[in-house]
């Protein structure tokens, strides 16, 4: 009991006074929980820029500026970035005429949904099992987490060898059938991501208040009821973050896609070759390095649409799962 109480005391309590403070002080309060505000905020207000400055500059150089430039370039015809010619909405028009883009969109959507469900269900199950005081659970956690440390390209090639090692026994290969390509990619992503999501779920499960679990036990709730009525509502913040991560990861997937199948096989539909296992990011990449003089602008327009899509979906999902979170 005492352990839980102590933990709750250290939790972040929003400072009501914060509303009247300068924006900078509010930032300071946010990071330091609004406590010790007098002792901490004065020197921080004076020297804070020194700490935040370099990161802000790096963020502007490495993210904000390229992002703005990227949006500008989506309205241009260009071969190199510093030599672009304004082209209007032509690029956006050609994006929607491109059947391969539409295909890769639906393919990515299907992939994102399936991988989201599988990764989260398995990650939660593994995390739940490993918080039940099993012997050697630390070892299991390490082993499950490890695939996440390998880069996507390497993983793609390793798994293509594994899959083809099996499929060649049947005289075929993962590059020949889009269904195998799809499930191959799902298996790969599950293998890589489950361990990562598991860590987040374990942190969430450990934070479920003991007194609630105890109360449920005293009230005679079964394990199943405790899981659904007490544990899951309490780990909703973890579920929010994990579903957000796996949804956006699913949409943004590139390395694994290019290394495992590179879009193969290709089928010709209405005279247009469609890469059956090409996801959005790979489609943008392939468009960018096509030979048409307008191809780069089109790819850039695709990238802007891609951003709006991923950001929109991610935010919508966040808003939805946030509503399900309970306040402790």
């Amino acid at each position: 009991m005492t352990k839980t109480k102590k933990k709750l005391e250290t939790d972040f309590v929003p400072n009501e006074k914060a509303a009247h403070k300068s924006p900078f002080k509010r930032v300071v309060d946010f990071f330091f929980g609004g406590k010790n505000s007098n002792a901490l905020s004065r020197p921080l207000a004076k020297w804070g820029w020194l700490f935040i400055g370099p990161v802000t500059i790096a963020f502007i150089i490495g993210f904000v500026w390229p992002f703005i430039q990227g949006i500008y370039l989506s309205f241009c015809k260009f071969r190199i970035v510093s030599d672009a010619e304004f082209y209007g909405f032509q690029n956006y028009a050609s994006v929607f005429e491109d059947a391969s883009f539409i295909h890769s969109f639906w393919y990515s959507a299907l992939f994102a949904i399936v991988s989201l469900i599988l990764i989260n269900v398995f990650a939660f199950a593994v995390a739940y099992a490993l918080t039940q005081n099993i012997k050697g659970s630390n070892l299991f956690r390490t082993v499950f987490f490890m695939p996440n440390l390998i880069g996507g390209i390497v993983l793609g090639y390793i798994w293509s060898m594994i899959f083809d090692g099996i499929l060649s026994q049947f005289g075929t290969s993962i590059l020949q059938n889009s269904t195998w390509g799809f499930w191959g990619l799902i298996i790969l992503m599950c293998w890589q991501q489950i361990g990562y999501m598991m860590i987040i779920y374990i942190a969430g499960l450990n934070a479920v208040p003991e007194d609630m679990l105890e109360a449920a036990k005293i009230d005679g709730a079964t394990k199943w009821q405790t899981l659904w009525r007490v544990t899951i509502p309490n780990v909703m913040p973890s579920i929010t973050i994990c579903t957000f991560l796996s949804l956006t990861n699913g949409f943004k997937l590139f390395d694994q896609n290019i290394a495992l199948t590179a879009g193969q096989p290709i089928s010709i539909q209405n005279g247009v070759p469609i890469k059956q296992t090409e996801m959005l990011a790979l489609n943008i990449y392939n468009t960018f390095y096509g030979t048409n003089t307008a191809a780069r602008g089109t790819a850039q327009a695709k990238a802007v649409i891609f951003f709006i899509l991923v950001a929109g979906l991610g935010l919508a999902q966040l808003a939805y799962t946030r509503k399900k979170e309970v306040q402790q």
Binding site: G171, T172, S173, L175, Q176, A262, G263, Q264, P265, I266, S267, I268, P273, K275, N286, Y289, G290, T291, N292
Partner: peptide, 20 residues
């Protein structure tokens, strides 16, 4: 060969199916 990477990729895919 026009749009050479895409042209060859489609050809590889078709040849894979034929090889099998």
């Amino acid at each position: 060969q026009p749009n050479v990477n895409e042209y060859r990729a489609a050809l590889v895919s078709a040849l894979n199916a034929y090889n099998a």
